[in-house]
């Protein structure tokens, strides 16, 4: 009988460890998900590359794709935000530039953070930015208007069936700690990519 009990306690302890490990796995799903997103483009997050990584011979001269720029402002942020031009025709492999105009409509200085999202999701795998206002958070003085630049490359490996893609930004109000966290995440993802 006692032997049975001892064995049972051992089994229970092992299973308890499994349960704790699975709790940890729940948290592990967060980085796993982020990696999966980078690999498959699940949530349309975009990649970042440095200027030197762009190779001129990658440019596909015969192909043009349409890139649309969509802008959103979270209701908690008293800003207006628009793309200067709604769409652009670009050659895959070439560095292109888009300008966005943002204005702080309030009487306070406000910090905002733009979050990008690309549709179709698959396109986000081939969408890389060399420079973007979304890499850091933006502080706008009361009533300030700012022109912001995105430089990006649509990879020449972009599948043929994708002819139009949308780069969408949503500006959120950034509380200080959230803003820093985002930057840290960005840096991490740069490292992972690099």
């Amino acid at each position: 009988m006692n032997l049975m009990k001892n064995n049972a306690t051992k089994t229970a302890k092992k299973l308890g460890l499994v349960a704790v490990a699975m709790f940890g796995f729940g948290y592990l799903m967060v980085p796993i998900y982020n990696v999966l997103c980078e690999v498959t483009g699940i949530n349309g997050k975009t990649g970042q590359i440095s200027q030197s990584e762009v190779k001129i011979e990658d440019v596909d001269p015969d192909r043009l794709v349409t890139v649309e720029f969509d802008t959103n402002v979270n209701p908690n942020l008293p800003w207006t935000f628009k793309a200067k031009k709604f769409k652009q025709r670009v050659r895959p492999g070439e560095i292109a530039e888009a300008i966005f105009i943002v204005k702080n409509e309030s009487t306070n200085s406000v910090v905002g953070q733009a979050i990008p999202s690309v549709a179709p999701e698959l396109a986000s795998l081939f969408f890389n930015k060399t420079e973007c206002f979304c890499f850091v958070n933006q502080t706008l003085a009361p009533g300030e208007t700012k022109e912001m630049v995105v430089r990006y490359v649509v990879g020449s490996e972009l599948p043929e069936k994708i002819t139009t893609m949308t780069l969408s930004y949503t500006f959120f109000k950034a509380s200080e700690d959230v803003a820093t966290k985002t930057i840290i995440d960005q840096k991490k993802s740069i490292k992972n990519n690099g």
């Binding site: 349960a19 704790v20 490990a21 699975m22 709790f23 940890g24 796995f25 729940g26 948290y27 799903m29 967060v30 979270n74 953070q113 979050i115 949503t170 959120f172 109000k173 950034a174 509380s175 700690d177 959230v178 966290k181 985002t182 995440d185 960005q186």
Partner: peptide, 26 residues
């Protein structure tokens, strides 16, 4: 335990400033 992990993340998102499920925080 995975569900327990998920709701714990909800809790910290709401009260402790994490941003697991908040697009604004990545």
């Amino acid at each position: 335990p995975v569900l327990a992990g998920g709701v714990t993340m909800l809790l910290t998102d709401k009260y402790f400033g994490t941003a697991f499920f908040d697009a604004a925080g990545g």
